[in-house]
């Protein structure tokens, strides 16, 4: 049940040997690299040219919390990989268990982000409108959060779909794998953001 895909079937001959949905997803992810690349470069440019404008990131960031969030997202990626593995093996129960874990960890990550935003905005007076730092920080991490939320929605739909009679491990393994690719990509974007936006702020030359 991947949205927006319908392959013209009975194309016996696939010259590249790549499933169209998978190829499509990788193309989308390549394109998304440019998307997040632009968001991240906006942030880094403003941090570069206005290093002293806005609040000091070290005084507002809660790096332990963010590290925890990163850990959570990494773990969700592990379960995602296991869920994909399970569906390929035809183990529906294992697939469901792992998918639920992915969603739980995804939700944990999101609640961490919601807490972080709340903490910044209310306790530390760092808002969306707080100059360029606030603008680029919130738009970038917020967009990432939206990606996570959409991923949870997608996996949740697949999870619910797996209880219907239409769901078969053989025919839907690719749908799960494609959703998994998306989820992992969201994870690697966070790996980049965690280093470029959070950790490197703590390095002082």
């Amino acid at each position: 049940m991947s949205a927006a895909t319908e392959v013209t079937e009975s194309q016996e001959h696939v010259p590249t040997g790549m499933h169209p949905k998978k190829l499509m997803m990788w193309l989308f992810l390549a394109s998304d690299c440019m998307f997040f690349g632009t968001l991240i470069s906006t942030h880094l440019i403003y941090r570069k040219i206005y290093p002293d404008v806005g609040p000091d990131p070290r005084s507002i960031f809660d790096i332990e919390l963010t590290t925890g969030s990163s850990f959570i997202l990494l773990m969700s990626s592990l379960f995602m990989a296991l869920a994909v593995s399970a569906i390929h093996k035809g183990e529906l129960k294992s697939f469901r268990r792992n998918t639920v874990l992915v969603m739980i960890f995804g939700l944990l990550f999101l609640s961490g982000q919601v807490y972080e935003f709340y903490d910044f905005a209310v306790n530390k007076d760092f808002k969306l409108t707080t100059g360029t730092f606030g603008s680029s920080f919130y738009l970038m991490t917020g967009t990432h959060g939206v990606h996570v939320a959409l991923g949870i929605l997608w996996l949740g739909s697949l999870f619910a779909y797996s209880y219907t009679k239409h769901f078969k491990a053989e025919t839907h393994a690719m749908d799960v794998e494609v959703a998994g690719l998306y989820w992992h990509f969201v994870d690697i974007v966070w790996i980049v953001i965690f280093t470029a936006v959070y950790l490197l702020e703590y390095v002082s030359f």
């Binding site: 590249t16 190829l23 990788w26 390549a30 690299c33 690349g37 991240i40 470069s41 440019i45 570069k48």
Partner: peptide, 21 residues
């Protein structure tokens, strides 16, 4: 081929980020 496609996106994106910075 999938690696190539993805890395192509990565290369253009990181090149653009570097040039902008």
């Amino acid at each position: 081929f999938l690696t190539i496609v993805f890395l192509f996106g990565m290369v253009i994106a990181s090149g653009t980020i570097a040039a902008l910075l």
